[in-house]
Each structure stands twice: as C-alpha cells, then as structure tokens.
Design a binder for these strands. Structure first.
Length: 670
DNA sequence: AGTAAAAGGTTTTTT
DNA sequence: ACCTTTTACT
C-alpha cells in the first residue's frame, strides 16, 4: 500500500489511543502520511463515512481522498467526509441549522459580497459626508472580519491593525450592527458566520448529534487555523474521538486571517495526553536548497525547533540574481525559464513565485510577448471581475428572491438607475420585507423604471421568467447573457469581450445539476486561476505556473524562481512595523524557498516602481531582502548587466522636440 | 432631485 | 485598475 514509510511517519500512521499532533516540516511526506493514516483507520474497520478530513482547500481534500481510495482495500473509502472548514460548516448547517434559527436555504456571501453589503450599509447609514473621509468598504470589511475571526474587541483591532481608522470607531460600530441585522433578516451568512454558527451548534442541543457523526477527525495545515476553528475542533470531539492534527508552525502564513500558531503550541493543553510526532526528513529538495531555507528560518525562533535534512546531498547551488530594474528581472526570468526548457525541464516543472499578485505584472507582459504559455494563481480571481458578479447576481435572485444584495446590483445595472432609484424600486418590489414575492411581482411588471431602462427591464423580466422554468443552469446563464449584452455597453468599455466571456461561466455551470448547487459550490470553492488567462491554452500543452506564495502552499516544482526579494516587497512594506508581521513574512520566504526540488533562483531588482497603480516612472532603490542578506554566502551571485537606459535619453531629447512642436502650434494662432 | 462624467486617492496575502 | 468624492448636467 504505502511503500517505505520512515519510522516517524510509520509511528504517526499507527498511533492510537490519544490525540496526535504531527509536526511535519516542508516536504517531509505529510500528505502521504496523512493519507496512509486514513487508510490504516479504514483498514482497521472504521466506517469511512464516519471519518472527517479537514483541509485548507477543497482540492487538497479531494486529492487526499483519491489517494486513499486508490490504495484502500475498502471500496467505500471515497465516502470519507472531506473539505475545508467552511464547506463542512455549510453541509452541517444545511442539516442542523434549523435549530440555530437558520433556514436550510440560506445563501453564502463570499468576500466581495460581504464587502459590497458593507458598502451599501455604509452609504445607507450616511457616512462619508462632505469633507469627512471615510475608510473604503474593503477596509471596513477587513476590520470586521479581523475582529470576528480573532474574537478581539473593535478598539484593540483598530489600535493594532488599523490605526488610521481609529477616528471612526463609533461609526464602524453602527455599520457593523446594521450589517449583522441585514444578514440575519435576509438569511445570508458570510465566511465568518459559517464558522461561528458551526461552533455555536457544537454547544447547542444538537451538539451531541453532531459529535456522533464522526469517530475520527483529521486536520491538515493546523498552523493556519484560527481560534474559532480550534474551538470547533474541540467541540466536535467526544472523549473517545480519535483526533489527529498535522501542521508546520514554520509555515504559518495566514495570520492576516487571524490564524494563529498558538493552536499548535497549545495543542497539548487543549487535548490532555496528546502525543507529538515530528517529521524532519525532507524528500523534496537538495541539501544546498535546504541549507538556505534552514538558515533563513533560523533568523526567527517563533517555532518548534526542527531542522530539515535530506538524503539528496548534492545539488546546484541556489542563485541570487541581482537585476538593474524590474524589466531586467522579467527578461532574465523569462530567459532562464526558456533555457531550462531547452535543457529538458518542461514548463510545468517550473514556477515563478511572488508575494503579491501585481509583482508579476511585468513578467506577464514579457511572457506574453515571447509566447510562453502560463497560468497565474492568486491575485484577482475570475469570479471577482465585475461582469461575472453581474451575472451571478441575476442567478442569485432567481435562487433566493430575498437576496437584497443581488437585487441591488441588478437594479443598479440598468441605464438611468442610480442609488435613489434603486431605493425606490426596492420599496415598490418589497425587497426589504423578507417577502419572497418580490421576484414574481417584478416579472409581472412591478417597479417603474426610468424610460431609458424600459427595453432593458423588459428583457430582464423575460429572461428571469424563462430561467424559472426549470431549465439547466448553463442554459439559464445563456439566456441571461442576452440581458448582459444589453446593459454591458453602458457599464464597460470592453463590453463585447465581457459578454463573450459569459460563455465560460455557462460551461462551468454545465457541470452542475441545479442552480443553487452551482452558486454554493462557486462561492465555497472558487476556481483559483486568474481571469485574464481563460485557462491553459490546451490541456495537454505545457505551461508555466505563476503563483503568489500563499497559493503555492503545499506544492512543489523542480525549479522555482522567486521574484522581488527586496525589502518592502518581501518582507512587505506593511509588515515592517511589527514583530509578528515580520516573523510571518519570514515564514513566507521560507515557504517560497522550500517549494524548490532541484533549482532555486532568488531575484532582486535594484529599483522598482513605487505605486502599484499608475505606471509612471516613480521608483525607489531597493535593499536586498533582510531575510536573504545574512545568508548571501549560500548563493551563487549573478548580476545582469544594466541595459542602456534609452528612456532617459529619450526624455532629454523629447524636451527639445516638444518645444519645437509647441512653437509650431503657437504659430497657428499668433 | 438624481444621474453621469470627471477628478482624486489608494495598505498584500484568501476560505 | 477600481472606488469614492466632487462637479456638471438633465
């Protein structure tokens, strides 16, 4: 079944009788060990459907279950309950939610939905009046989520994480109250609510029924769970529940989401009698790469002590490449990638990693220019693009006519309809009244729209009526596309492209039997690829992976190129202030370095642009990342020659030309 | 009164 | 590039 487990892995697989914490360093065969343990549990006679496997992404869960099913002797192995905390909460709340006052048909708000709702509440409550600058809706939502998921007081969150918003404390309180009221009134839950309601149920009368569902609970990436999730784990365990948590405190990178490694450190306190097993043998990287990673990590002591080692003693020395500027970095990385391919390393075996989505902007241009196929993970998601949200709002109204947020978006999409008209229409349709007839009334012609929107409204009513007729989700998308074609030109410059893009959504929808299933799956497990590339050109083609370090968690490539290893980028400028933030940035660097199996290149441009927006010429001269500088001697250093700066000379020349042109022009009216 | 267009600002990372 | 605020226009 699972060949050649080392003694520690075997111990982790075989252990029974007390809660188990596996501290598994990067590349130490964590996934294999966890899968083997699930297998062992099933082969010992457990009912697979009474095993709960909580992972960080839905994909990780299905991969692991597939692995178990492939080797298990029990055919039913695929019936293991697997998923993220959020998707599991969703499933449980559909069954047990009634006792918490939830209707089974509740809607889940994703990040951007809750942000939009926060924005609506914000304007309805009348903040942002003259002269008074108010935090943006993203910031308001961020404050809220951090407060809830870390269970901290508003005042403390403001002081430590949002000092520039401290003036608005009272206003924020008002907004949060109203936000919560609306969520409840319209039967919608945001991500935080999913966890809060789950935790609430564990201490409610149905708690015992929930605890009786599972005999074995396994949790992956335990270092990235937050205090509420730790409570949930505690709350789902009976005294005899077999519990196993796996994690690496050196790879904790979700502190911004209120995850805390304290959950790992305090595991033995929360679960008395707990056993700990540590995995240190790395099967992924060569020693020269691990030496760098270990040296970087040793700059912080905020973790269980552990030193990775590998049987792969020999290997290429990692490269530290210094570039003149961002452009040189892009050119150099693109060239290095192609060189590696020449040597026989497919693009799929290589990856480019970076701290923030926009750090790859320059490289993306260069790759496109050279026709190098790539897929980007992280950054702005497909579902977050405005036109996709427009269409999803239409589906959500059909699914839940009480979804005020979706109505808001849809009504405002019509010509000549602004905030005031939306409010009037909401009243006329009775959307605020928890009244399910709003949709029926709208289709029947209720709601007086401005004359500019007459045609659009007629089309909308017809399309919605057709969609209620029980046609397949993909056909509904297709039918609604006609309405999009009508309103997009007012809203977007590139309307035609956006309308055409809706087809992609239709093909995604084709995989789902019902509209509501489609919507829920989409919010809980959104496709992680970025929008601009509509997926790999051809499935059997070769393509390069571009990814944020966060999205690269748990993955590995033969060759890894890290971009922008400069102070201000990694560590991020925003983390420089506090110690914990800085420690997290260091772990982020560690995660990036440990993704590489054979080859590692750390890139560092001497200058980079200051602001993420506006592609102007403003730039700063950077320092090499403070995490890399002390360990420079472990690298081979390489400097790409500065290109002749034509732009500078062009600028000088342009002054003269501009003067001449102006003189010529002036002559026309003088 | 209310919408559209123009100007001005802007703390990553994600379930 | 997007969101918020200000101003201009109907």
């Amino acid at each position: 079944m699972f060949d050649s487990l080392n003694p520690e892995q075997q111990a982790a697989v075989d252990h029974t009788g007390s809660p188990l914490l596996i501290v598994a360093g990067a590349g130490t065969g964590k996934t294999k060990t966890l899968a083997a343990r699930v297998c062992r549990i099933i082969d010992d006679g457990a009912d697979p459907s009474r095993v709960l496997l909580l992972t960080f992404t839905r994909r990780a869960a299905s991969e692991m279950i597939a692995r178990v099913a492939a080797v298990s002797t029990d055919r039913a192995a695929s019936r293991v309950w697997g998923g993220t905390f959020h998707s599991t909460a969703n499933r449980l709340l559909r069954n047990f939610g009634q006792s918490a006052g939830l209707s089974a048909g509740f809607t889940v708000l994703d990040q951007s939905d809750s942000t939009d709702l926060m924005g609506i509440v914000r304007t309805d409550e009348g903040f942002g009046e003259r002269g008074m600058r108010f935090p943006r809706k993203e910031t308001v939502a961020g404050i809220y989520s951090r407060m809830v998921s870390s269970q901290a007081k508003l005042a403390d969150v403001l002081e430590t994480d949002y000092p520039w918003c401290a003036d608005h404390q009272d206003d924020l309180r008002t907004i949060f109250t109203s936000y919560t009221t609306r969520k409840r009134a319209h039967q919608v839950l945001d991500y935080d609510d999913l966890l809060l309601f789950w935790r609430g149920l564990t201490v409610s009368p149905v708690g015992d029924a929930m605890r009786d569902l599972f005999d074995h609970i396994l949790i992956d990436e335990y270092q990235d769970t937050n205090p509420i999730q730790a409570d949930i784990v505690r709350g789902m365990c009976r005294p005899d529940t077999d519990l196993c948590a796996v994690g690496d405190d050196a790879q904790a990178i979700y502190g911004f989401r209120a995850a805390t490694v304290a959950n790992m450190w305090e595991f033995a306190d929360r679960f008395p009698g707990a056993t700990r097993v540590t995995l240190e043998q790395n099967y992924r990287s060569t020693m020269p790469i691990l030496n760098v990673a270990n040296a970087v990590l040793s700059q912080s002591d905020e973790h269980f002590s552990k030193e990775l080692w590998s049987g792969r003693r020999q290997g290429l020395t990692p490269t530290l490449a210094t570039h003149h500027d961002e452009g040189a970095q892009s050119t150099s990385v693109a060239t290095a990638v192609l060189d590696a391919r020449e040597r026989g390393m497919d693009l799929r075996e290589q990856a480019v990693l970076f701290r923030a989505g926009h750090h790859a902007d320059g490289l993306e241009l260069e790759l496109t220019r050279r026709d190098i196929p790539y897929v980007k993970y992280g950054g702005l998601k497909y579902l977050e693009s405005a036109h996709v949200k427009d269409l999803l709002a239409l589906l959500r109204i059909l699914d839940n006519p009480a979804d005020q947020l979706a109505w808001h978006r849809v009504l405002a999409s019509m010509e000549g309809v602004g905030p005031a008209t939306v409010r009037r229409l909401s009243d006329e349709l009775g959307i605020e009244n928890e009244d399910d007839d709003a949709l029926a009334r709208f289709i029947d012609g209720a709601g007086r729209v401005p004359s500019a929107a007459h045609e659009q409204a007629t089309e909308l009513r017809g399309a919605m009526e057709a969609c209620l007729d029980g046609i397949a989700p993909s056909e509904q998308v297709d039918r609604l596309k006609a309405y999009c074609a009508l309103v997009f030109p007012n809203r977007y410059d590139d309307a035609a492209a956006r309308v055409a893009d809706i087809d992609q959504l239709a093909s995604t929808a084709a995989a789902y039997a019902t509209r509501s299933r489609f919507l829920t799956e989409l919010t809980l497990d959104p496709p992680s690829k970025t929008s601009d590339q509509a997926g790999p050109p051809h499935l059997d083609d070769d393509w390069l992976t571009l990814s944020t370090i966060h999205s690269a968690k748990g993955l590995e490539w033969r060759s890894v190129h890290l971009l922008h290893a400069a102070d201000g980028n990694l560590p991020s400028e925003m983390a420089l202030g506090d110690e914990h933030g800085l420690a997290e940035e260091l772990r982020l660097m560690y995660v990036a370095l440990t993704r590489a199996k054979d080859e590692l290149t750390v890139n560092f441009p001497l200058r980079f642009h200051v602001n993420r927006y506006a592609h102007d010429d403003r730039h700063v001269y950077a320092q090499l990342s403070r995490f890399i500088d002390p360990v420079r001697e472990l690298f081979d250093e390489q400097t790409t020659a500065p290109e002749i700066d034509l732009r500078h000379e062009a600028e000088m020349a342009s002054v003269g030309v501009a003067d001449e042109v102006d003189t010529l022009l002036a002559a026309l009216w003088d």
